[in-house]
Simulated assay, not measured.
Amino acid sequence: MLKPNKYLLILLATVTAYVLFEYYRPKPIDWRPTYENNDKIPFGTEALFELLPDMMQPSAIKMVRLPVYNFLTETKLPTRSNYILICHSFKADGNDLKQLLAYVRRGNNAFISAYDLPDSLGKVIGFKADVKDPTKADSTLRQNFTNPPLQKATGYNFFHDDGRNFLAVRKPQNTSVLARNARKEPVFIRVHYGKGQFFIHNLPLAFTNYYVLDQKTSDYAFKALSYLPALPTYWDEFQKQGRFDEDQQSIFRYIRSQPALNWAYYLVAFGLLFYTIFAGKRTQRIIPIVAPPKNTSLDFVKTVGRMYFQQGNHDNLARKKIQYFLADVREQFGLNTAILDKEFADTLARKSGASKEETDELVQLLRNAQKSISLSEIDLLALNRAMEKFKQTI
């Protein structure tokens, strides 16, 4: 029987202990401000979303997972309704704002609570979402309603907020201030627009689970929303969760939404990358360097030529050069080289593009060489110069 490897056992025990520790250890609190209606974390809005129907009875609360433009143009809406948007940043383009303004102008109500609000909306209805400089940050700053029945004697403190955000009113004739901070700056306003109303609020943390379930601040969100009439109400989740709900999400989107699976995804991705970089190099077969084929015909001709020249066999070398030259002429220009007459010279000059004089001189040398009994070194050199000159010309 094989003895178990103690190092392998130690490694296995360590991994098992780590997995059990990670599984059973208390999960750290997630303090991300998501404002999502299905988040139980401190800064989600599940508590408010579940309690809101009791407040708005007998009206219904419906969740919206579409952009403002798509929802208001594609949905058959009742005569009058409310539209609630609670998020960190209210992102709306020109088409969204155009439809939202038309929606309120017809007699509906829009409740928007966000730190970042588009300037284009503020310019139309008369406000600016302003921010104090960092030196004015104050987490102890208290808020309170301006309506005496809604006021709390000690005010409301949302200490996770730095107290720098406030609203600057630009059109007082259409605007009512519903809440202020301790510096007397508006933080919640109502703007009459057409037949409807905009409720602009710039402290969305007040509507999260942490402050809705805290006894000291639990009534603030409901007092703020009590300004909305009891009408069918639409709760926006597109600004926070996008277009698709859990049933419509892809597997990849679900993986990215779960921290543990997201980390596993990154580990697999980086592991495959490192494997490709390092393991791939070690296992890759060396590709041999293959030299391109070398044309040895020219070297062979030069070698044979030097041999004939060194041996002094000028007649044989000259006649072979004539033979190879005429073979090239036949192949390149399609001429019959059996008779080297004036007609041949004229045709060769026309087809090759060489001058008439050079061609006549070359053909004359070739004709004389064929008639000669023996060719000397001088004849060989003259023939070679004429043929090389002709080749360079064409």
Rank of each mutant, 00 (worst) to 15 (best):
T146V: 10
D236G: 06
K3V: 12
K216S: 15
I322V: 01
L231R: 13
R367D: 09
A318E: 09
E246Q: 05
Y308D: 15
K321D: 09
I322N: 04
K40L: 08
P33Y: 15
M1N: 09
T393H: 01
F390A: 10
A153E: 10
A47R: 00
S176K: 11
N109P: 04
L97D: 00
E22I: 11
V301C: 07
A369Q: 07
R256L: 04
D328R: 15
Y18P: 11
D379Q: 01
S81H: 06
T73I: 00
Q392H: 15
H160T: 12
F158I: 00
P26W: 12
I10T: 11
I378C: 04
F222C: 11
N336Q: 02
T303M: 03
K184Q: 15
S59P: 14
Y265T: 00
F207D: 00
N262H: 03
A230T: 15
Q311L: 09
K6F: 15
L366A: 04
E74I: 04
D133Q: 10
N316L: 06
A13W: 03
A168N: 11
A60H: 09
A182E: 13
I200F: 05
R350V: 02
F21I: 06
R80M: 14
D133S: 07
I255T: 04
A137Q: 11
A92H: 03
D236Q: 03
Y211H: 03
L150S: 10
T146I: 08
N70E: 07
M1G: 14
I251D: 09
L365W: 09
K281C: 08
Q249I: 11
L381R: 14
V131A: 06
I339D: 04
D247S: 02
L326V: 12
